[in-house]
Design a protein around this nucleic acid. Structure first.
Length: 950
RNA sequence: AGGACUAUAGCUCAGUUGGUUAGAGCGCAUCGUUGACAUCGAUGAGGUCGGCGAUUCGAAUUCGCCUAGUCCUACCA
């Protein structure tokens, strides 16, 4: 074996073998267990969040596979409508200087598919490097033909069930991307703005109480005044009560608009008068509905002022002959240019009362970053309330369970107040909406044009398919069953749906989890006709952040490619990766500086297993996961530790008989102890995996392997293996334990660290008497309660106690670690005596003793340094070895600790209330502790006195 | 405005149903190269568990209030 573990030498080769031999495909035997991968963007690349998520899914999948389940991890990618379209648009712009409109829809889409073919392999390669045991034969893409069938079918069924409708509504419009987006895709950002106080002249000679001939309205968006339909006041507002029903002559425009009364108005805010623009504000829209105000749209799709405003009734009908118009000066101006112009003109007209600084939440598109414009457009919507009801119930009654549980509240609070979902997007890349319209604008929904014609007896009239595509999340909502063949009733669907667990981040509970539950429950039924849930458990993990707790993002330049942690990367390459090809080149300097600070030498190579193990060990219940390179390094060292332990085991066992073929076996205390500890480790790991505490599983493995198997058991095996007088049965027992425990723990660790465990297992399987082509197909260890040996554990703890005592004296007294020293044991009981008799070889070897002597009660001990193991005194004679003052210091330190404890326990036990109210066993325990502490303190005091006396 | 989450060693984090000497890794200090491993070993230092109060015989753990930070939802003309 190589002297150090070199992950790059083994990882890829094993993955190829696994994949080549089709080990990832479901076995077809055992209870089905399935997970779908949250499909990453096909044109993107995996970031740390994916690496984290995929590690967890793979750990679960391998765990369940080894436990004998018929395991499917469904893999695939998402077409990611807006993100992909933007990316390709930018690419074409950069390379050819053209827009998508220059190319036209068909050519543009061809470019997207070309780009997908070119970049689509990145994700799948990364998944392979992570060791993901996904069934590649079932790989799906949300835009492939089969999946499109599912999307179409879902749309048609929802439409036929009255859950999809089309209408002219106010939607969130992105003026850059020229598409509607859902409310979830809008972020509200705190920004500084102004509140403009505008004088709106009263018509017909009306005046306010204080004799003014105008009302003052406050607005953050003066440009929308062109579309004002009313001014609203509170019905009980004494200042304005008498003006309700009167009219305002809209400045600059000249139109008369009514003064209306509505509870929505807050009398305290601003002047208590609100301008109402139903076509450009969500609140105004609903107020317009209540008061039957017309809707006057003054913006075009670029959010520039239109030439001629469009006017609609509250129900969205076009008002054919309307007189509204826009002053020529503003026509065609961008919204912000128009704002300035209008403010200037109002000022000139003496109608600007005041400009007030005002902080407000600005709605920005999460993709474009532009301010979103509420705009009246024709869109398709899903009526979500009826879908939400069963979806809420499924979580309430536990058919679906969130882990950690608290996320259910997040889910409920959103679902109980859910808004209709705008699913149409004015994009080119995506699933074309399966709806056709005739020349009069009547829409027909169906699976194909032919079906539509037939169904509606349309003959051969002109039909055109809707130009729009569906929100990406509409298709990903079908992911769990669409990937399994739905709408066909396939065997896979019957077997693997509902899936067992969804592993995802909390940031997409609304986007994806909730919608998936709604869609799935409406569209899929089990054999009894009951709605089927998409998954039984939702494991919600935290988000991976950088060393400062910042979210990783490309624009911040703090992303880390998982492959760079696996393979390592030079500083120059890392800098280039982070600052090259940036959207905002002005940030390059800052990013460079940060990168230099955090990664002055680039990133070392840690290997996949170290990365995976680290990610698992960070997977606790928190919301943030700060990536700490120190942890990864530590875990790379852990891999190396396993590697070298194996080296030791092989060296000592390959030449000898490990009992594979039988033969008499005698187990030492150490053998029985480590076997017992193994059972407990198996219990702990299995239990932790079952409750999604990967951090606990990782910690149990780390502790068992490093602190018990390596630190103690391997050391304890040496006195046996190197003992010329050891019997064949003893040697066989120890060798068999060395090999057997290591073999078992490799299987135990395999779900977290697949590569190193496979590599080593292959070397070890023969010695362990195991066959089988791969560790990943081996059974997962099951703890055997019969092998738990509490006596062995107590006895071994005694051995460790004596050794620790000697080592402590050595360490504190500056006795060279290699110098053999004599040790005396005194005041021991029969159990101590017996333990000494059976284990003296262990003590001599591990504590590097020259001799070990048992003193009877009345034997005189020389002046010694002392350690206590229970009642037993472990004595190291001081002659020539130990500094008197140092020993006094050491003893007094320990004595101080004991006295503190005695005081604390004494106080507790003399507390009447404690003694009368606490459970008996607690009291007994405290009494024992007190007695032990007193005995120990006593002994130490005597020692102190003795040493002081010289 | 409502809600959620976080606060434990210098750093990153564990801490089950209240009873532990409050743990781990990294970092730090001292010592250590003949037999798996310096990507290592041995020993050690380091915490009034954010603050205040309550419940209790007993609180890192339960409850209330406060402070700091993060996030979500709604809304601010």
């Amino acid at each position: 074996m190589e002297k150090t573990y070199n992950p790059s030498a083994i990882e890829q080769q094993w993955y190829q073998q696994w994949e080549h031999n089709n080990y990832f495909a479901p076995s077809g035997e055992g209870t089905p267990y399935s997970i779908v991968i949250p499909p990453p963007n096909v044109t993107g690349s995996l970031h740390m969040g994916h690496a984290f998520q995929d590690t967890i899914m793979d750990a679960l999948t391998r765990f369940k596979r080894m436990q004998g389940h018929d395991t499917l991890w469904q893999v695939g990618t998402d077409h990611a409508g807006i993100a992909t379209q933007m990316l390709v648009e930018r690419k074409i712009q950069a390379e050819e200087g053209k827009t998508r409109h220059d190319l036209g829809r068909d050519k543009f889409l061809k470019k997207v598919w070309e780009w997908k073919a070119e970049s689509g392999g990145t994700i799948t390669q990364q998944l392979r490097r992570m060791g993901a045991s996904v069934d590649w034969s079932r790989e799906r893409f949300t835009m492939d033909d089969g999946f499109y069938t599912a999307v179409q079918e879902a749309f048609v069924r929802l439409y036929d069930d009255g859950l999809i409708y089309r209408g002219k509504r106010l939607v969130n419009w992105d003026p850059k991307l020229h598409t509607a987006i859902s409310d979830l895709e809008v972020e509200s950002i705190d920004e500084k703005g102004y509140l403009w106080h505008l004088r709106y002249p009263l018509a017909g000679g009306a005046t306010t109480d204080d004799g003014k001939n105008f009302l003052v309205v406050a607005t953050t968006r003066p440009e929308t005044m062109l579309g004002d339909a009313a001014v609203a006041v509170h019905p009980k507002d004494e200042r304005y009560k008498h003006l309700i029903g009167q009219f305002i002559k809209l400045p600059l425009v000249g139109r008369l608009i009514p003064i209306i009364a509505d509870d929505y108005v807050d009398q305290e805010f601003g002047t208590g008068c609100v301008k109402i623009t139903p076509a450009h504000d969500f609140n105004d829209y609903t107020m317009g509905q209540r008061h039957d105000l017309g809707m006057i749209n003054v913006f075009d799709h670029d959010a520039a002022i239109v030439q001629v405003p469009e006017v609609y009734t509250t129900s969205g009908e076009v008002v054919a002959a309307h007189e509204e118009s826009i002053p020529a000066a503003y026509r065609g101006l961008d919204r912000f240019v128009a704002r300035e112009q209008i403010v200037t003109d109002l000022t000139a007209a003496g109608l600007l009362e005041e400009i007030e600084d005002h902080g407000l939440k600005v709605p920005r598109g999460d993709r474009s970053g532009l301010i979103i414009e509420p705009l009246l457009t024709d869109q398709w919507f899903v009526s979500t309330k009826p879908l939400a009801k069963p979806a809420i119930e499924a979580v309430e009654d536990g058919r679906i369970e969130f882990v950690p549980k608290q996320w259910e509240n997040t889910y409920f609070s959103w679902m109980r107040d859910i808004q209709d979902w705008c699913i149409s997007r004015q994009l080119w890349w995506g699933h074309r909406i399966p709806a056709w319209h005739d020349d009069d604008g009547a829409f027909y929904v169906g699976r194909s044009e032919a079906e539509v014609r037939l169904k509606h007896k349309l003959g051969d009239i002109n039909l055109k398919q809707d130009e729009d595509v569906l929100d990406t999340w509409f298709s990903s909502g079908l992911w769990t069953f669409g990937t399994l063949g739905w709408p066909n009733s396939t065997e896979a669907l019957a077997k693997y749906h509902p899936t067992d667990v969804l592993v995802t981040g909390f940031d997409i509970i609304f986007f994806w989890v909730a919608r998936m539950i709604m869609m799935t429950m409406h569209l899929t039924k089990d054999e009894t006709g009951e709605a089927q849930v998409p998954f039984k458990t939702v494991y919600v993990h935290g988000l991976v952040r950088d060393q400062d707790g910042e979210k990783m993002s490309k624009s911040k330049g703090n992303v880390i490619d998982p492959l760079d942690l696996i393979d390592g990367i030079e500083l120059d390459a890392l800098l280039e990766k982070r600052t090259g090809n940036m959207m905002q080149p002005q940030l390059a300097k800052k990013i460079e500086k940060q990168t230099l600070k955090h990664f002055p030498d680039g990133i070392a190579s840690y290997g996949t297993d170290a990365l995976r193990f680290t990610l698992c060990s960070l997977a606790s219940t928190g919301r943030d996961i700060k990536l700490d390179l120190g942890r990864i390094e530590g875990n790379r060292n852990f891999c190396n530790k396993i590697w070298n332990a194996t080296n030791y085991v092989l060296m000592n066992c390959e030449a000898g008989d490990c009992g594979q073929t039988g033969g008499e076996v005698e187990l030492s205390l150490a053998d029985r102890w480590i076997r017992s500890r193994l059972q407990k480790a198996e219990q702990k790991v299995t239990e932790s995996m079952g409750v999604y505490r990967f951090d606990h599983a990782a910690e149990a493995l780390y502790h068992f392997i490093w602190s018990e198997y390596c630190d103690w058991y391997l050391e304890l095996s040496k006195p046996v293996l190197w003992d010329d007088n050891a019997t064949e049965a003893q040697l066989r027992g120890t060798r068999r334990t060395l090999v057997g425990v290591l073999e078992a723990v490799l299987r135990l660790a395999h779900p977290l660290m697949p590569y190193i465990t496979e590599e080593i297992w292959q070397k070890l399987k023969g010695l362990a008497g195991k066959g089988g082509a791969s560790i990943m197909l081996q059974p997962y260890p099951v703890a055997d309660a019969g092998l738990i040996d509490e006596t062995a554990e107590v006895d071994l703890n005694w051995v460790r106690g004596v050794i620790d005592g000697v080592r402590n004296i050595r360490g504190e007294m500056n006795i060279a670690p290699g110098k053999p020293i004599p040790v005396l044991l005194k005041q021991g009981d029969t159990a101590d005596r017996q333990r000494l008799n059976t284990n003296s070889q262990f003590l001599i070897k591990l504590a590097k003793l020259e001799s070990i002597t048992w003193l009877e009660e009345d034997d005189e001990a020389p002046l010694s340094a002392t350690s206590l193991v229970g009642g037993l005194e472990v004595l190291v004679p001081m002659a020539g070895l130990i500094d008197k003052d140092a020993e006094l210091g050491r003893l007094n330190k320990e004595l101080g600790r004991l006295l503190g404890e005695i005081k604390r326990l004494g106080g507790k036990l003399s507390n009447e209330k404690f003694v009368s109210k606490a459970p008996a066993q607690v009291i007994d325990k405290e009494r024992d502790k007190l007695r032990d502490a007193e005995t120990a303190a006593n002994k130490l005091q005597q020692k102190v006195a003795k040493i002081e006396a010289i």
